[in-house]
């Protein structure tokens, strides 16, 4: 996957524009929730970037899933590199979602974490799986490392749809983002969330490209070192 420099700059510019727009929308444009059911209505504004970070982590793990299947089917290194890069970026965004959620929880629920909540627990397991994926890639010295990682990435992805639907299937304190039969979010809230999701998606693309570039450079350096050793 080779982006040219122009494409790189365009993605960065779009990411920056949407980041600024998303911050404006989240803090100024969107109203503070006016519902007596909320204990901490101002803290609800965390939601715009918490949900966006979670969405991008799901997207990133989805890319790991697809690239892992392609790698197992075709055996091309570029698919393996892309899976590795996407997993790392996904873990970063998933960490942000997992850290900001409890901060909101402490203001809204009075506790940081609820282990009985299926959505929280499944998302935490998802995070652990992909941290283990990165440890496996970094620590195991084996020719089959890429194949093992691909199998791990495919199995790990199972938690993504589970996490997405868990609050709708099982009883959960976690608010539902997607509209339910009980009601949907206001147009302003929806626009604020959309701006956050678009901003983080462009950031993901930019960071993914950077991470992929690092993997390619590391491989080149290894090749050159071998060449020098062989001369």
């Amino acid at each position: 996957m080779k982006f040219d420099k122009k494409m790189d700059t365009m993605v960065l510019v779009l990411a920056l524009v949407f980041v600024l727009l998303a911050i404006y929308m989240a803090l100024i444009y969107t109203p503070v929730v006016d519902d007596p059911g909320w204990n901490a209505p101002k803290a609800q504004k965390i939601f715009y970037f918490h949900v966006s970070a979670a969405w991008v982590s799901f997207l990133a793990f989805g890319v790991v899933f697809i690239m892992s299947i392609l790698y197992l089917a075709k055996g091309l290194k570029k698919w393996d590199d892309l899976a590795f890069a996407s997993a790392e970026v996904g873990v970063v965004f998933c960490t942000l979602a997992i850290v900001t959620g409890p901060i909101w929880g402490s203001a809204e629920w009075g506790v940081y974490w609820r282990w009985e909540d299926t959505k929280l627990t499944i998302t935490f397991v998802l995070w652990l799986i992909f941290v283990a994926y990165l440890v496996l890639r970094g620590g195991v010295e084996s020719e089959d490392k890429s194949r093992l990682a691909a199998i791990f990435g495919i199995i790990g992805f199972v938690c993504v749809p589970l996490s997405f639907v868990s609050s709708r299937i099982w009883q959960s304190m976690h608010p539902n983002v997607v509209a339910t039969s009980e009601g949907s979010m206001s147009a302003e809230t929806g626009m604020g969330l959309l701006a956050g999701v678009v901003a983080f998606t462009f950031l993901y693309l930019f960071i993914l490209k950077k991470r992929l570039n690092i993997i390619e450079m590391t491989s080149k350096i290894e090749d050159l070192k071998e060449k020098i050793g062989g001369l």
Binding site: A40, P41, K42, A43, K45, I46, F49, H50, T100, I103, W104, S106, A107
Partner: peptide
């Protein structure tokens, strides 16, 4: 944690 503190921290 207060709601504004939580917002700034996050």
């Amino acid at each position: 944690m207060g709601e504004l503190e939580a917002l700034y921290l996050a």
